[in-house]
Write a protein that binds this DNA or RNA. Structure first.
Lengths: 338, 338
DNA sequence: CTGAAAGCGCTTACAG
DNA sequence: CTGAAAGCGCTTACAG
């Protein structure tokens, strides 16, 4: 630490001396209080109060081989982090779930190669007990591979392409969700349904497109598919492209709400009514869904549940169990756009 | 860690044995390579490669009493973090500056009481060598006090109200910046200049208002002051209130760009031309400044410089020096709104 | 330049 | 229920 004149921090030995017990007893008190008599317990508690003792996490980690902290690893850029609200929801959800169990969360952003290298070093060095892997893109197989090979427990958010069998994960049922939205659009009498799909290197992007295609069956028209990168801007561009190509479309399923919002902006600019002439459906039920005009009809992803399960599964793996996989259902939320 | 069948991680002893040197030599190699012969160096390097040795950070921290990591402590809610882009810029800037010196950053959000308690425990327990304190509000004197009392080095971003003498900090020259913007507005011939001030419990809010008042001198009219909380919405509401109270204002200085953007939205809705009838000036030069219509004239805060200096000063304090304070100038950026 | 040894502050069988 | 002792994996004077 800093200034040399800072008094030495009290240790278990100081507490033990003060309480008139052994260090072992103090340690037992610190770790749940099992096998310590009421008298000893009281004495130790008083001694801790009196000395102002604080446990030294490094000494403890060295002895236990545990850090009691996990990493939230986001392989995205700063820009994406702040643009896509889903990340914030996952951060908040996992952070809360972890707090309840008293394990701390260290947040790691690895958008560039240099950052990925540092993240790999940090994680494989043993700074954390496990990692919550959050990133839509399949990218960084190298990073994930190295973390996995180092034996560090990992639970991914969404299906980690290329690692679906090796890692545990919890994902929303994208295929079924996409089918449900598509069916909803058809139930409205729409027949020329287009989709603004997500990135091809994300499981969500792939599966939502699959669900869309499956539900449409014979009615599926490859010309009515345009890909975006989940950003608002890309949704707007995709909508424009779709309109040029097929002016007769009467509905659009966007693979996330941000792109749906972009599409809505493009339609508004062109004076095309929603849902009058074109119905629009999104995915996520992000905050933006209620801020657009008209408000978005969308598929709700259970982010809180996803966060909780990720934490639960990760803690299980850390405790020595084999990694589990979990798929959670989504819900149709009907608002005004479709 | 987890599965009991994971092979034991190699230690310095393994490397030493492999290289045919002592553990001390391996350690010296690991810490800069001073006082180790070229032969020993080569042998150790080879042994590390062969064994796949990774340093154990906890053992090292226990021995050195250093963690080689610092905290980025943000006493704001998740909502604010994602709404105010300044936080993201500071995160990125400090993160980059720290990466260069190979110290890691642990990000801590302490918006609620429970989170503040956890943050305090984490920090005073010795998980990090120091903290970069980022939060506009004076709030949490308790948290700051306890961290300070525990002897943990702290450098604040902006002047930490109540701790301006105790902690080191680096701040933009808010008073001068506000004066400059106000002078710019007057130079445009505006005479009824209002301000949407920042929160009263932030040094930025206070000082930008002070600069505004000082520059106006006799012309200052307390009726033309409305306070916001730095959010876009509050800027819009403040603009509306100002207009109700004084329909004749011909210029507005908003204490940050987000509020300026809110004000612009309100003016647009009322069909009031900018800068035609009312000129609008902001503060920050955030990304939003070039996205509004018209583009915002604003005071640029040197966030990159602020980030770098914060890191430099914190590392100094950690190294044992007394905390320094630093005020950085801002620059007028003239665009279209004033 | 190098090695032996002590020390950093905990935890955890083990014996009692 | 409790204490003595070993061990976790490094670093750092110290002596050579």
């Amino acid at each position: 630490m800093n200034s040399g004149d800072r008094p030495r921090r009290p240790t278990v030995s100081d507490v033990a001396a003060e309480a008139g017990v052994s260090r072992g007893t103090v340690s037992r008190y610190l770790n749940g209080g099992h096998w310590v008599s009421p008298e000893a317990e009281a004495a130790v508690a008083a001694a801790i109060r009196k000395t102002g003792y604080r446990i030294n996490p490094h000494a403890r980690s060295l002895a236990t081989q545990r850090t009691n902290s996990v990493a939230f690893l986001l392989t995205e850029s700063f820009e994406r982090l702040f643009e896509d609200p889903n990340f914030a929801r996952l951060m908040r959800g996992t952070s809360a779930a972890l707090a309840e169990r008293d394990v701390s969360l260290v947040f790691i952003l690895a958008g560039s190669d240099a950052e990925r290298r540092r993240a790999r070093d940090f994680i494989t060095q043993g700074h954390v007990d496990g990692v919550l892997l959050v990133s839509s893109h399949a990218g960084e197989p190298g990073l994930i591979e190295e973390i996995h090979r180092a034996g560090v427990p990992v639970i991914a958010c969404g299906i980690p392409l290329g690692f679906e069998r090796k890692l545990g994960w919890v994902a929303a049922d994208d295929t079924t969700g996409a089918r449900e939205m598509t069916a909803h659009l058809r139930s409205l009498g729409r027949t020329r349904i287009a989709t603004i799909a997500g990135p091809r290197d994300t499981s969500g992007g792939i599966q939502r497109l699959t669900g869309f295609r499956e539900e449409l069956g014979e009615a599926f028209d490859a010309d009515l598919v345009e890909h975006g990168d989940y950003s608002r801007r890309s949704g707007r561009a995709a909508m424009a492209a779709l309109l040029e190509r097929a002016p007769d479309i009467d509905a659009v399923f966007a693979a996330n709400d941000l792109m749906a919002a972009g599409a809505l902006a493009e339609l508004a600019e062109r004076g095309i009514t929603v849902p009058g002439r074109i119905a629009v459906g999104g995915f996520d039920d992000a905050a933006v869904a209620v801020e657009t005009t008209p408000a978005l009809t969308t598929m709700r992803q259970p982010f809180d549940r996803i966060s909780q399960e990720m934490v639960r599964l990760l803690l299980e793996v850390i405790a020595g169990e084999k990694p589990a996989r979990m798929t959670l259902p989504t819900d149709l939320v009907v608002r005004d756009s479709a």
